[in-house]
Design a protein around this nucleic acid. Structure first.
Length: 336
DNA sequence: CGCGTTTGACCGGCGC
DNA sequence: GCGCCGGTCAAACGCG
């Protein structure tokens, strides 16, 4: 029961991190990525705060456990700080390169990427077990249902019913291989404020998309991130259904995640991009022997790319992690 | 009776 | 140009 209380408080902290940081720091560009950095970094703390297995344990044992967990959190905090330092160095190097060594060809690539990002009507797909019954907090109105080729399960079409003429659509379909898995695909951006539950989901999904868009700098066909930290509780894949259609980021909540506190420091890179190769963010540990067209990035590279796109992210990231770690430790103190 | 769901028709994009 | 397929529309239907 105490674990549930702690979890609830942590979720409140998550919400606080998403909202208050947004207001205080005036995030006007790509807020989703910053919000979700807070959200996901919190999940690191949350994963570290697993409640006691039995609520009949001696209070003394609980105190000792909490103290151990607090020590682990401190270590994690140190890891995060060292990560920031590394990010800062990468950022400085990248910025220096951008300012001093941008050739006309590179400038064109950057311009193309910006155009590509603005033009793509990207979608975010969430795979989850149906028993999880993940509500997204929005009100949806069903406007169609269709049997799609290759899947006997019908695909339901919903549009957001919360705002006036909200352009957001979602599709819900059961997986053909495993009917216990429900695939929910979101498309478009809400033109209205979201309730907290919806905002958390939107933060996660949109940041996954932003991560992809900011990280897919080498190929528009296939790229893979190895990123245990930003998506510690899920894995994600992105693909282009066809060469000209929009990319789809898939967050896979059906796979277990482990070793979420490990910070990969090296990247394993392979080539051979293909037109339909998946782009994936996997929960750590990464299966490096995967598809031949994969290309892996460590967390630092991903964050560096994001910071390069938006330098103000650095300060926000620092503030968010400091806030989250502080809040997590406060919660621990409250339970002591 | 109002609102949401169902379901067949319709439309547009894409590949051959 | 034709057919396939995914997505959307809108009338019919059901439920509270």
């Amino acid at each position: 029961m105490e674990g549930k209380v702690a979890l609830k408080k942590l979720l409140e902290v998550q919400e606080k991190a998403c909202v208050s940081n947004t207001d205080a720091l005036n995030w006007t560009q790509e807020p989703s990525i910053r919000n979700t950095l807070g959200y996901t970094l919190l999940s690191l703390s949350l994963n570290n705060l697993e409640p006691p297995q039995s609520h009949e344990q001696q209070p003394l044992n609980q105190l000792a456990l909490l103290q151990i967990e607090l020590e682990e959190l401190k270590k994690e905090n140190q890891n995060l700080r060292s990560m920031f330092n590394e990010i800062t160095e990468h950022y400085a190097a990248l910025q220096s390169k951008m300012n001093n060594q941008v050739t006309p060809q590179e400038a064109k690539i950057i311009e193309d990427q910006a155009f590509e990002a603005s033009c793509k009507k990207a979608r975010v797909s969430v795979r989850a077990r149906s028993e999880l019954s993940l509500g997204d907090g929005c009100q949806w109105r069903k406007y169609g249902q269709k049997i799609s080729k290759g899947n006997p399960c019908p695909r339901a079409y919903y549009r957001c019913n919360m705002g006036t003429a909200c352009p957001v659509r979602k599709q819900v379909q059961r997986c053909a291989e495993d009917e216990s898995v429900v695939i929910t695909t979101y498309e478009g951006n809400h033109n209205h404020s979201l309730p907290p539950a919806a905002r958390s989901m939107a933060c996660t999904t949109s940041a996954a998309l932003t991560m992809f868009l900011s990280g897919s700098t080498t190929s528009s066909h296939g790229t893979t991130f190895s990123n245990s930290d930003l998506f510690s509780s899920l894995s994600a894949s992105t693909h282009y259904p066809s060469a000209s259609s929009c990319p789809t980021v898939t967050l896979d909540l059906t796979q277990p995640s482990k070793d979420y506190l490990k910070f990969p420091s090296a990247s394993a890179i392979s080539s051979n991009h293909s037109q339909t190769a998946p782009l994936s963010l996997h929960a750590y540990p990464q299966q490096s022997e995967g598809l031949p067209s994969e290309k892996n990035f460590p967390l630092v590279d991903v964050l560096s790319a994001a910071i390069t796109r938006d330098p103000s992210l650095k300060a926000v990231l620092e503030a968010t992690v400091s806030s989250i770690i502080g809040d997590a430790q406060n919660i621990l103190s409250e339970h002591q």
